[in-house]
């Protein structure tokens, strides 16, 4: 077995752990973490593909490397957005008025439209 194959298999394993985590994650943080593991696994498989494609004087195919860099930055953006939503959710749940009954009513209010965001305090 060669290093690219070994790390390709590791990528497969990380992807599997990520998929499992996304399916069973009990809280949103768990699922965000699982998403990042899955991303790491996908990128690693791509890295193995890149290393196998070494040639023409390069130790690895540069195209997948560039794509993985793009992918990592996109995954970070996704994480930042998800965490911002998660924090907002935690803040809303911590409010005294956020009893379940009120939550159910929020939908009707929501359809009124044109309400200032966050204006339900």
């Amino acid at each position: 077995m060669s290093a690219p194959v070994l790390f390709g298999l590791l990528g497969a394993a990380l992807s599997a752990v990520g998929v499992y985590g996304l399916m069973v994650g009990r809280d949103a943080l768990a699922r965000i973490l699982a998403f990042n593991l899955l991303g790491g696994g996908v990128f690693l498989v791509f890295g193995a593909v890149a290393r196998r494609g070494a040639g023409a004087g390069f130790a690895a195919d540069p195209v997948p490397q560039a794509l993985v860099i793009t992918g990592i930055v996109v995954a970070f953006s996704a994480t930042a957005l998800a965490v911002a939503l998660l924090k907002r959710l935690a803040a809303l749940r911590a409010r005294p008025g956020a009893a379940p009954a009120k939550v159910a009513g929020a939908q009707a209010e929501g359809t009124k439209g044109r309400v200032q965001p966050g204006g339900d305090a």
Binding site: G8, A12, S15, A16, A48, G53, D61
Partner: peptide, 24 residues
């Protein structure tokens, strides 16, 4: 997921297709 990916990783074509020559 793991098994399928592992099979694919082990069965990737040899020599590996690559865009490295085009980049060069």
């Amino acid at each position: 997921v793991f098994a399928a990916l592992a099979v694919v990783v082990l069965l990737l074509p040899d020599p590996a297709p690559s865009l490295a020559p085009d980049v060069v």
